[in-house]
Structure formats: C-alpha cells, structure tokens
Design a protein around this nucleic acid. Structure first.
Lengths: 93, 93
DNA sequence: ACCGTCTATCGCAATTCTGATATATAGCAA
DNA sequence: TTGCTATATATCAGAATTGCGATAGACGGT
C-alpha cells in the first residue's frame, strides 16, 4: 500500500479538506474527459487548438484541471474532437 | 400540422442557419436540465440563489438560455438543488 | 548530444460571465 | 383593484476566463 493513499484516507476525514477535495475532483474528472476525448480522436493539442480557433497553450490549460473551463470552450473542444457535450444534473450521492 | 414546424424543417436545410440552430439547441438543453433540477427540488429561484450565494436575477439568467453559464456556476446550482453535475464528451451524431 | 515534436506554464490584454440593484411582467387570491 | 409571490430583463462594475506569445520541460529518434 502506498503511503500517499493512507494520507488521502486520513485527510478525507477532515471536513474542511473534504470540501476542497470534492471540488477538485470535479475538475480532475472533467480534465480526464477532455484528455480521453482527444486521445480517441488521435489529435495533438495543437491540432485541436487550430480546429477550435485558439492556441495550444489554451488547450493545455483546459486539460490541466487547474481552472474550470467555460461551457462555451467545452462545446468547442468537443466539436474539435468529434464529440458533443452532455451536461446532466443527477441526484447527489 | 403547425406552420411553425414546416418553417423549421425548411430552415434546417440551410447550412448556415443549421449551425446557429445547433448551437442554440445546446443552450436550451442545458436550460431545461437546470429548470428540471430545480422543479424536482421544489425550490424557487430565490431559494436556489440564496443557497448558491447569489441573487434571484442571476439564477433567472442561467435558466434563460440566453447565455452559457460557467462550469463553476453549474456546480453551485447543482449543489443547491441537491444534484451533482456530470459532464460527458460523447461521440458526435 | 542534437533535433523535432508534443505538452506545460507564465504574464498580460481583451473578452465574457457574475453579482447586485432596480424594475417589469404574470398569475393568483382576497 | 390591490397585494403578494415568482420569474424575467436591463445595466454596470468587478471577477473570472480566454487568446496569445514566449519559453521551458519531456521524450524519442538519429
């Protein structure tokens, strides 16, 4: 067992940290969606960027998960990788 | 058959209009998701607004479909109505 | 080691969205 | 009609995101 995992389990018991973590998880999940979509399309960031009408650095930023991208950007990114965006509000766990 | 429907079918054959229409459809679909989530929660715009830490007018704007709300706002809105946001990039039709 | 390709990050101006207030409209009940 | 509640719209300053160039790191091939 990796010590990082132990640390994570312990920290998640802290409510304050937990809140932060959940918010971050949102961003990471989204970043994975993006990277996965681009991988399926077999395109580089630069190629997606050109199709979106923007630059490679902007695409890298979206995939970094350091910022939540706008809905408009998501739609453009999806189109560039041959996908469409689906946004659902499902019952919270 | 309503004449509006006939007009719509005809217009959708126009590629330029079609593009506009698809973009709008995106926003309307999202607005419906939001309104539906709030209806299930049986909350008013003002109640959701207070839970989101914003005002009734901001909630109305999100649901109007006249602007694409930010991802951050979607997350807050979902939480306020007892939901969570799911964003998926699926194969384009 | 050098080169070419792909990705990550920084800083700043420009664009877009948000928060807030005020006001308008619609429906309903007394 | 009056009053009350819920929703819609306008405006504007402030906040957040984007576009862009420059640059650095990572990786594989020669």
């Amino acid at each position: 067992m990796k010590s990082v995992e132990a640390w994570k389990r312990k920290m998640l018991k802290n409510p304050a940290f937990r809140k932060e973590y959940d918010a971050l998880e949102e961003e990471f999940a989204l970043a994975n969606e993006l990277i996965g979509a681009r991988a399926k399309a077999k395109l580089t960031q630069a190629q997606v960027a050109r199709r979106m009408g923007t630059t490679q650095s902007a695409v890298a930023r979206m995939e970094s998960g350091r910022k939540l991208p706008s809905t408009a950007s998501l739609v453009k990114y999806a189109a560039a990788t041959g996908h469409k965006v689906e946004i659902r509000l499902t019952k919270a766990r």
